[in-house]
């Protein structure tokens, strides 16, 4: 049972957990996000796009790892460009990077505890928060195993555990299902649904089926711009019968993306 903090019961003073207007972000010299608009509230949001669409750069910017090059970005009602607010925003952020780094000699419990400390979780809450995070990703049996001894799927789950240890209001998961076996992916979808009840969860993925199964809505981006937004059901319905794909959602993805490309060419 976690302690209820004052922040948990404080009235929310913003409409969107994540709000971007004409956002531009550079990845090196390349402008990977180019005039993107986005408004996300509580729920599970799937971020879809082809390779190079700007998903990871957008996630890094939302995680406050890189600064926007232009436009406006607000997280939890606070402007990201104002450095003084960053620390407060980060306390309520959870982030699983695509390339998840970890200290191999730490145990799972130690690593999650370390991240909880980095997120400035109150000292008295840390033991309970760590245990809860480890249990939620199903790693309690491996809690005292060294990180270097974990399989790829377990590492991904440990990565998710560190991301959720502070019960973040905004949770950003970049390719979280890589390395998970089919059964773990099913469990993971359940976890996403649970997490999305209280927080704004943005999941970047290539796996359209995960989006269809667990997300409340979908954001598709192409070449750094928002190409389409809607629900998974709307995405599935948009699919043309002739479009490539093994499921309605995959066909919907291919159809919507194809239309956007055509429009962009015109």
């Amino acid at each position: 049972m976690r302690t209820v903090r004052a922040a948990d019961i404080a009235p929310q003073t913003y409409r969107w957990s994540i709000e971007a207007r004409n956002l531009t972000v550079k990845a090196g010299r390349h402008q990977a996000v180019n005039g993107l608009d986005l408004s996300l509230g509580i729920g599970v949001h799937g971020l879809l796009g082809a390779n190079g669409a700007g998903k990871t750069t957008l996630m890094r910017c939302l995680a406050t790892v890189i600064q926007p090059a232009g436009g406006e970005l607000s997280l939890l009602g606070a402007e990201v460009s104002r450095g003084s607010r960053l620390r407060g925003i980060r306390r309520d952020l959870g982030y699983l990077p695509q390339a998840f780094g970890y200290y191999p000699r730490f145990t799972v419990r130690e690593f999650v505890e370390y991240v909880a400390w980095l997120k400035e979780t109150p000292a008295q809450d840390i033991p309970g928060a760590v245990q809860r995070a480890v249990e939620r990703v199903g790693l309690e049996a491996k809690a005292d195993a060294k990180m270097k001894s974990l399989s790829g799927g377990m590492l991904r789950r440990a990565g998710i555990a560190q991301a959720i240890v502070n019960d973040p209001a905004v949770l950003l998961l970049d390719e979280p299902t890589v390395g998970l076996d089919p059964e773990q992916r099913l469990d993971f979808r359940d976890l996403l649904r649970t997490l999305g009840v209280e927080s704004c969860l943005l999941v970047s993925t290539h796996l359209v089926e995960d989006v269809a199964a667990a997300c409340t809505d979908v954001v598709m981006i192409h070449e750094g711009r928002t190409a389409w937004t809607g629900t998974p059901e709307e995405l599935a319905a948009a699919g043309a019968d002739s479009a490539p794909g093994d499921s309605p959602t995959e066909r919907g993805y291919a159809t919507v993306l194809g239309r956007y490309r055509e429009q962009a060419v015109r």
């Binding site: 407060g88 998840f100 200290y103």
Partner: peptide, 22 residues
């Protein structure tokens, strides 16, 4: 060098605790 060696820069940069505290 360990943060660099274990590719933790990305994750650490998203946390509120400043570099001096880390």
């Amino acid at each position: 060098m360990r943060e660099h060696r274990h590719h933790l820069g990305e994750l650490l940069a998203s946390t509120p605790r400043p570099r001096a505290g880390r």
